[in-house]
């Protein structure tokens, strides 16, 4: 089965229509030559007027019905999720929810989930799997909440379990990073067959401020840390962390929620259309390979299993399978 995919992918090489059609950027050279600095991107990604999960869900999906609670402790407002329709077909959607005002941000805990938020997400992932409905996740968080109650309720366990569930969830999974992809708290929603990011989204192992405080011993070096960490759009393409970027309106996503949502919708429909043609067993092994291939190291002896030099699955995105291939 895997061979067949590889074969048809090769046959389709040179066919770049998806990237154009869906407005996706799959190569940093496709970006404008005057790019924002990484620090400016960090600011844009955090802009309070930026479209957050609910702004996107209400524009991209039809008939969204929110589902609440982790069935164990409480309903975490920093993660929302439910069942909706995309282009007439059902999907499960789960996203981190930041606020659009200070008041809402306090209610939403600034988009920083507690363990029960991740456990609600897992409940919805399982629901998607049980009823064979594709899963779409929207990542937008400074990180998982680091407070003592979160520690008491097992923040690390919740994140680890959520990542684990996503690595083997037997339905197509598409991830869209809307704004901040903050560390493990983001990755708990971030394991998918395809990972897309908005043009001005960031994805990082630690906040630039946190990195600066530890490595430069001064949070005011955050700007330098942002450059060093390679957390902005074009860097995410280079490292393969994102498969493609979704173009934002000229002034940034916060200037036009409708246009941003429209671009996300086009991309999601195209990706789900493609993924729904891949047998689930193949999806799972491709997903394993996708995350398996991250890492750069040297083995003077040649090693037992050298990692592939170039993540080949990125080519899939640019060269979608012809509809009759499978």
């Amino acid at each position: 089965m895997l061979d067949r995919i590889v074969g048809s992918r090769r046959a389709a090489e040179g066919n770049g229509h998806l990237a154009v059609e869906a407005g996706l950027i799959t190569d940093a050279t496709q970006l404008a030559s005057t790019r924002p600095t990484p620090w400016q991107t960090v600011q844009t990604a955090r802009n309070i007027a930026r479209p957050h999960a609910h702004d996107i869900i209400s524009r991209v999906f039809d008939r969204f019905q929110e589902l609440h609670g982790d069935r164990a402790f409480r309903d975490d407002p920093a993660i929302i999720g439910g069942i909706a329709e995309l282009g007439g077909r059902p999907v499960v959607v789960v996203g981190q929810q930041k606020g659009s005002s200070t008041e809402e941000n306090i209610e939403r805990n600034f988009g920083m989930p507690y363990p029960e938020g991740y456990r609600k997400a897992m409940r919805l992932y399982r629901l998607a799997q049980k009823f064979h409905v594709p899963l779409i996740t929207l990542v937008d968080t400074p990180g998982a909440y680091p407070g003592p109650e979160a520690e008491e309720r097992g923040q690390a366990e919740a994140i680890a379990s959520s990542i684990q569930l996503m690595t083997r969830l037997a339905v197509p999974v598409v991830v869209v990073v809307l704004g901040e992809g903050g560390s493990g708290g983001a990755l708990a929603l971030g394991v998918g067959d395809v990972v897309l990011a908005l043009e001005n989204a960031t994805y990082s192992v630690i906040s630039p401020e946190g990195c600066a405080a530890i490595l430069w011993r001064s949070a005011s070096e955050a700007e330098r840390a942002a450059v060093a960490m390679k957390l902005a759009g074009p860097d995410l393409l280079d490292t393969g962390v994102a498969d493609a970027l979704i173009r934002e309106p000229a002034g940034g996503a916060h200037t036009d929620h409708d246009a941003t949502a429209a671009a996300i919708k086009t991309a999601l429909i195209a990706q789900l259309e493609r993924l729904s043609r891949v047998p689930v067993a193949d999806l799972l092994s491709l997903r394993y390979e996708r995350f398996r291939s991250f890492g750069m190291f040297v083995e003077p002896s040649g090693g037992t299993a050298p990692a592939p030099p170039r993540p080949w699955w990125r080519r899939i995105l640019r060269n979608p399978l012809p509809k009759d291939a499978l």
Binding site: L187, V191, V205, A228, L231, V241, F294, G295
Partner: peptide
């Protein structure tokens, strides 16, 4: 995670988790 490897280090979380999930 090792900050000096940025998001590549973060992706090691998913990579190792996927590997132990197979044992499960």
């Amino acid at each position: 995670a090792r900050m000096q490897e940025g998001t590549i280090a973060l992706m090691q979380l998913a990579k190792t988790v996927a590997a132990v999930a197979r044992l499960d």
